[in-house]
Computed example of a mutant assay.
Amino acid sequence: MTICSTRWTTGILTIGALTASPLSGAMAVAPSATAAYTEQCNSNQVTSVGVTPGYSITRPAYQSGVDRTANCWMDYGSAGKGAEWLQFSLNSCYGFRLATDGVFGSATRSALASAQGQENITADGQYGTQSSQYLKFPRYREITGDRSGCESIN
């Protein structure tokens, strides 16, 4: 009995020491979910990469000066042209009736989570890499600019 309880106590002390050791020194902190992104989406970007030849899609993007990247994020409380384009896209491609006011509120979050679920990606109501790649966005014919349905880059 003494041997078993000694082993059990030693095991608990070992686990406690391993758990406490990272806390005693410098603490490693995981980067936030948005750390991998350039910035909050504030514009939109036209791309034909990954889209049916002869067509392009327009999706939310971050713009700084003349440079734009689709590597951006949005979440509840975000506001601006990126949120407005997301709302327009959700209305156009998924049939929602969101106000296109550029304010990422609870209705936009719910609609985004629903669209994410339809595309079988993480349905968290936050816009990021998966949403940028897998959600459908308005598609345009490159020669005429005519709207032609919706498409994702995947």
Rank of each mutant, 00 (worst) to 15 (best):
Y140R: 12
A61R: 00
G102L: 13
M27Y: 03
E84W: 04
E119S: 12
D146V: 05
I15A: 12
S78K: 05
Y55A: 08
W73V: 00
T69Q: 06
L86D: 05
V66Y: 09
V29T: 08
Y37R: 04
N42W: 04
S21A: 15
Y140H: 09
Q40C: 12
A107F: 10
Y127K: 06
P31M: 02
L135Q: 09
L135P: 04
W8M: 15
A26P: 11
G54C: 05
L86Q: 05
I143C: 05
G117I: 10
T52Q: 14
G102C: 09
L135N: 08
R147D: 10
L90R: 03
C93A: 01
I153S: 13
F96Q: 07
G125C: 04
T38R: 02
N154Q: 10
Y134V: 07
E119C: 08
R59E: 10
G128R: 13
T129V: 06
I57N: 14
A17H: 02
L23D: 06
S148G: 10
A99P: 04
S132W: 07
Q130A: 15
T129I: 09
E84M: 10
Y127C: 13
G105H: 05
A99K: 13
N120V: 03
Y94I: 06
P53C: 14
G11W: 01
N44H: 13
T108R: 09
A99E: 10
C41L: 15
L112Q: 09
D67A: 14
C41S: 15
D124V: 09
G95F: 03
I121Q: 03
Y37N: 07
S106R: 13
N91M: 08
A113E: 07
Q45H: 11
G128C: 02
A111W: 02
F137G: 01
G11P: 00
